[in-house]
């Protein structure tokens, strides 16, 4: 169970949050938003790259908001795989395990299992520099999964891949989630991607969550014209909402309705 309570952080001009959101265990949340909406920052806050204060970040009921990244057990996969170039694939996958006191046999078994799960067993001894984008991203995923994180964070993991690898890995992500049922937060700006992998969706704009909830529900009832357009739906309610200037539709990147319609508080 992941719970955010009024998470907030200022970066000069830009303010992230306050964000309140909750994600039940084993759900796959897709955070969707245009570039500059703060979705990657939200993910960094979850990973612990910076501390988000004021506000609380609860993971399985414990407040982890003040912990450094290494003690949160939230594995993060970036746009670029960021594999350690001096280690081969299996050692990269084993990296997180080698930091813990895990016996060698068990470590090797788990690495083998993960390489198999992601279909990259043949690359076990390859150097990261030799891998294609899709292969490298699979290794990065395996490396993240190896530490059995409580929360898997994916920061636009498919955006640097070519079209075919992207479709392949997208299906793979869905399959992995079904097999491992890890609580996952996946950030993207691609609505197709969001619609094909997510259980839940949170739509961000200007550092805030505009709407969140199960994907089907949000698809059925978008909260405002922006959400509708971003999901590729038509806005049926007609006209503007109270307090909404619809400036966001012209690309201002800001939502001027004070109360975000998020349901997660």
């Amino acid at each position: 169970m992941l719970e955010l309570r009024k998470l907030q952080r200022c970066f000069g001009e830009f303010t992230l949050g306050p964000i309140s959101l909750s994600l039940p265990v084993r759900r796959y949340l897709v955070v969707l938003g245009p570039s500059g909406s703060g979705k990657s920052l939200l993910l960094s806050a979850l990973a612990g790259v910076f501390r988000a204060e004021p506000g609380h970040l609860l993971l399985d009921g414990h407040d982890v908001g003040g912990l450094p990244p290494e003690r949160r057990n939230c594995a993060l996969v970036f746009q670029d795989p960021w594999l350690l170039p001096h280690l081969d694939v299996s050692r990269n996958v084993a990296f997180g395990l080698s930091l813990r006191a895990i016996p060698k046999g068990e470590r090797e078994a788990r690495v083998r299992e993960l390489l198999e799960l992601l279909g990259i067993t043949r690359l076990a001894k390859a150097r990261p520099a030799r891998l294609s984008g899709g292969e490298a991203q699979r290794v990065a995923l395996a490396r993240a999964l190896a530490v059995r994180p409580r929360l898997l964070l994916l920061d636009e993991p498919l955006s640097r891949l070519d079209h075919n690898s992207r479709l392949e890995l997208r299906a793979e992500l869905r399959r992995l989630h079904q097999t491992l049922s890890l609580t996952t937060v996946h950030v993207t700006h691609d609505r197709e991607e969001a619609r094909s992998v997510g259980d839940d969706v949170a739509i961000m704009l200007g550092g805030r969550v505009v709407q969140s909830g199960p994907l089907s529900l949000v698809m059925e009832r978008p909260a405002c014209p922006f959400v509708a357009r971003f999901l590729g739906l038509s806005w049926r309610e007609g006209g503007a909402l109270p307090g909404c200037s619809q400036k966001c539709m012209e690309g201002s990147g800001l939502c001027d309705r004070m109360e975000p319609t998020g349901e997660g508080d």
Binding site: P68, P69, A75, L99, A140, R143, A144, V147
Partner: peptide, 15 residues
């Protein structure tokens, strides 16, 4: 690159 270090930290590496 700092991201490489961030990635290592999220995997459990102390500073």
């Amino acid at each position: 690159p700092e991201q490489l270090e961030t990635a290592a930290r999220t995997l459990g590496a102390r500073p």
